Amino acid sequence: MSRQATLSDGAQRTLTECAAGSTERKRTRRNIHHPWCVTGCMVERVESVRKRMQASPEAIYQAFAEPGAMERWLPPSNMTGEMLDFDFREGGSYRMRLTYKDKQAGQGKTSETSDEMEVRFPRLEPNHRIEQEVLFESDDLAFAGTMRLIWTFESEGNGVIVTVRAENVPAGIQSEDHKAGIKSTLDNLAAFVEQDG
């Protein structure tokens, strides 16, 4: 079976497919603090996290527009990122490989040590809003699917409120772990855009 198991837009895994997934693998992946490390079925679940950053909306938007920038701030602390393809425009997409630093066998969903994701940009509003559809690749459909992320940037005083709204959140991820993952990514982004401030 090919390693690629990318689902089409809006495709949802069935409860039967979820039940067939490995309970042990769900347990080991559940606590990976990264908003895009999906486990279990996609369901109509929405979660949102926000953070104030000392930067302009233009600087934050630009952090998404450059592949080298995203490699620096997007991966969680226990992973490195490699941009495989990048086309930042409305209707465009990018593909990134996230590799675990400790190379522990069995952690990755695309390979033993890595996760690959394809992210599409269905809607872009420069300096204000970025909508993403995140597709994961895996031989196991219990770990493949599409999640929608909506990033908004609202000026407030001399800073910006960045909000991440996640839709179709996987049922296998505990809410507190998922929110911690988004918070970690927002912290990384803040450190990146504020470094010259």
Score class of each variant (00 low, 15 high):
His34Gln: 08
Thr152Leu: 03
Val193Gly: 12
Ile32Gln: 12
Gln54Ser: 13
Val134Asp: 13
Asn78His: 13
Arg165Met: 14
Gln12Phe: 13
Gly197Arg: 12
Asp102Trp: 04
Ala180Ile: 02
Arg148Cys: 01
Val164Leu: 11
Phe86Val: 01
Glu167Gly: 05
Val49Ala: 09
Val38Arg: 11
Lys109Leu: 13
Phe143Leu: 05
Gly21Phe: 07
Leu135Val: 05
Asp102Ala: 12
Ala55Thr: 06
Ala180Asn: 08
Met1Ala: 15
Gly92Leu: 03
Glu24Thr: 12
Arg3Gly: 10
Arg148Thr: 06
Glu137Ala: 07
Ala19Met: 11
Lys51Arg: 15
Thr146Arg: 14
Ser93Asn: 12
Phe64Arg: 01
Val169Asp: 03
His33Val: 11
Gly91Thr: 01
Pro170Glu: 07
Asp187Glu: 14
Arg45Tyr: 00
His34Asn: 14
Glu17Ala: 12
Lys51Asp: 05
Met53Pro: 06
Ala105Ser: 11
Thr80Trp: 05
Gly197Leu: 00
Trp73Gln: 04
His128Asn: 04
Ser2Phe: 05
His128Val: 04
Asp9Leu: 01
Thr99Trp: 00
Lys103Gly: 02
Glu137Asp: 04
Ala144Cys: 11
Val169Gln: 09
Met117Phe: 13
Leu149Lys: 04
Ala69Thr: 01
Asp196Met: 07
Pro126Glu: 12
Thr14Glu: 00
Val193Trp: 11
Trp36Asp: 00
Thr152Glu: 11
Glu66Phe: 02
Ala63Gln: 01
Leu135Arg: 08
Arg45Met: 11
Phe88Arg: 00
Ser93Gly: 02
Asp177Gln: 15
Met83Thr: 13
Thr80Leu: 12
Glu156Thr: 12
Glu112Asn: 10
Pro35Gln: 11
Arg129Glu: 14
Val119His: 02
Phe88Tyr: 04
Gly10His: 07
Pro57Glu: 08
Thr99Asp: 04
Asp140Arg: 04
Phe143Pro: 09
Glu137Leu: 09
Thr110Gly: 02
Phe88Asp: 01
Thr39Ala: 15
Gln4Pro: 02
Gln107Met: 15
Arg97Cys: 11
Arg13His: 06
Gln4Met: 11
Phe143Asp: 02
Thr39Gln: 05
Arg165Thr: 14
Arg13Asn: 14
Glu17Cys: 07
Gly21Met: 13
